[in-house]
Design a protein around this nucleic acid. Sequence first.
DNA 1: CGCATACCCGGACGGACGTACGGACAACGA
DNA 2: TCGTTGTCCGTACGTCCGTCCGGGTATGCG
Lengths: 130, 130
Amino acid sequence: MSDDRGQPHQHPVDPERVARARERLPSRDDAASVSSVLTLISDPTRSRVLYALDVAEELCVGDLALALEVNEDAVGYALRVLRTAGLVANRREGRVVYYRLAPDFPEPLLDSCLWRLVALTRSPSPDDGP
Amino acid sequence: MSDDRGQPHQHPVDPERVARARERLPSRDDAASVSSVLTLISDPTRSRVLYALDVAEELCVGDLALALEVNEDAVGYALRVLRTAGLVANRREGRVVYYRLAPDFPEPLLDSCLWRLVALTRSPSPDDGP
DNA sequence: CGCATACCCGGACGGACGTACGGACAACGA
DNA sequence: TCGTTGTCCGTACGTCCGTCCGGGTATGCG
C-alpha cells in the first residue's frame, strides 16, 4: 500500500451515484471524439476562420488572412488542420484556392456551439431568450 | 522588402466578401473568450468530469475518479482547472469534498455543446477513415 | 494521542501544439 | 520565355499543458 496514489479508494462514498454516472456517461471513445472536435475549434485562428467562412461563404487564403488580420502562415496552418479533419473544402481556380465550409459540416457545431458561445461569453444575461 | 511573408496581398480578390466578413466577425476578444472556454472543455478528463457531475449531481473526488476510471491526480488537476474557471463548486463535509456544477454554469455549454456533440459524433458516423 | 484517510499543493519531466523560415510548384502577365 | 504571384510543404524552435511524484494539512477513528 505504498503507491496507491493512482488508484482511488475502493469504498465509494456514494455507490449509487457512482453507478448512475458510470452507466449514463459517454464512453471513452465518444468523449475522445468530442474532445478532438472541440480541440479543433478551440484555437482562436481556426475558430475565426470558421466564423469568416460562415459569413462570407467562400474566401481564398489571402483574403482570409486579410479579413482576420493575421499572417498567411497562420491561416495556412489553420486551413491545413481543418482540411485534414474534413471541416473545410477547397476549390481551385487558376492559382487561387478558395475555401468554404465542408458540405457536411455539422451545423450544430456552428450554430449551437460557436455562435451561441460568442453571444454567451459576451452578454452573460441569463434571461436571454433563444 | 524580404519578410513580406507575414503580410498578405494588399489587393483582395473579393473585397466585398472580405468587408462583410470583417464587420460580422466576432472581435478578437470575443473569439479569445470562446476559445478559452472551449479549451476548458476540450480535455477528455475535464469534459467527462462535467458529464459525470451533470448526471450524478454531486460527487466527491474519490468517487469521481472511480466513476471515470482515472487516477485521483488527473481528477484533482481537472477539478482545479474547472474550479479556477468557476465552472464547478465544491462543498466540504468532514474530510470529504463534494463537487457539483457551478450554480451559474452556462446551460447551453452543457446541452447544446457537450451532449449534442456526443450524439453528433456517434450517430452519423462521419468516419474520416481512409 | 497516534495513525490512517481524503484531499490539496508545488516542482519537474515529457510530449504535443503553433509559429517562423526556407524552399518548391503551378499559373498568369508581359 | 522570364519574372512575379498565390499557395503548399517540410523542418526547427519555443512554449504551453497534463502527468507524475514528493510532501503537506486537516479530519475521523481507535
